[in-house]
Amino acid sequence: MVEVRARRIAAAAFAALAVLGAGAACGVADAGEASVADKDALVIGVNTDQPGVGVRTDNGTYEGFDIDVAKEIAARLGVREPGVRFKPVYSATREDMLQQGDVDLVVASYSVTPERKVKVSFAGPYYVAHQDILVRAADAPKVRDIHDLQGRRLCKVRGSVSFPRVHDEQGVAALPVEEDGYSDCLTDLVENRLDAVSTDDLILAGLAGNASESGHKLAVVNAPFTDEPYGVGIRKGDEDGCEAVNKAITGMYQDGTAARLLKRWFGTSGLKITTTVPQFEGCV
């Protein structure tokens, strides 16, 4: 009996050491993940279908307000353009791509919400947009605010919080038309497959401008009903990286870079643009 008991004690001790060893190894791996503040190259997740905000052009390059913001942040972190690579993200994939390490940062009209902060961290915001409504110009007299979306066909982008803000939070029974991105919403709107698009005003201004170039007349209702703080998505726990990005954003506002970029992309849109540094969320 004594011998059996001794063997059991030894086995238990060995198992405990194995568990501790595995935990220590895991801890070393976690601690070894490089902060974005220390990287020589960055992969940044961006949108590809939001004119004025983030698009991929026919020749494969990226342009828009978010793209310029991403380049500025990278440069202020010490990473110049040869070391910056953009990777497409969608509303439904942003958290997963950050968590899996597919991207280092996400700069993609990424509104900070309590639900998202459970999964990832946010630096910034670098701008506070406002959710509004885009309709065909001929329908503008019929849609003056969010309540006029009742019973109308409204684009619902998978993974975006914009439709739930209308339908769930405001209790407006709009009819969902599901799409993967806002370029699809724009096509549906001009081709009369839906009645309205509701999302951040910067995105709507870009969509309206893009439609105008193609001869389609759209109108932003100018009836904002939310604040949409655009954060820079970052891996959960990278507080050093978050603080470094916040410092970069502050510098962009202090030296006039942010105001210049906002004017470049939205100066003729008719939107009221804010050029003071937003209230930061805090790096948690």
Rank of each mutant, 00 (worst) to 15 (best):
Y230P: 09
V221T: 08
C155L: 04
D184W: 02
V135Y: 03
E178A: 14
G45H: 08
R152C: 08
P82A: 03
V190G: 00
L186S: 00
C185A: 05
D58G: 06
E243S: 08
Y62Q: 07
A70L: 05
G64K: 02
G159W: 09
G270V: 00
L189M: 02
L154Q: 03
R144N: 09
V118L: 03
T199V: 10
V106I: 11
L98S: 11
L105D: 07
A29Y: 08
P88K: 08
L194K: 04
A208E: 02
K119A: 14
F14K: 10
F65Y: 15
T113S: 15
A108I: 06
S198E: 03
S35P: 03
V4C: 03
E281N: 11
K217V: 03
Y62P: 03
D148F: 04
F122V: 01
E72F: 06
T275G: 07
T61V: 04
Y126A: 14
G27F: 11
D238F: 10
A259L: 10
L271Y: 01
V2M: 10
H167D: 14
V69R: 04
V53I: 06
G52V: 00
A31P: 04
R8P: 01
R136M: 06
F163L: 07
D96R: 10
H147S: 10
V43A: 12
A24C: 05
H167E: 10
G23T: 15
E115R: 14
F266T: 01
E178G: 11
E239T: 15
T48H: 07
N246D: 12
R85Y: 05
D104P: 02
T57C: 01
R193G: 01
A24Q: 13
L262V: 02
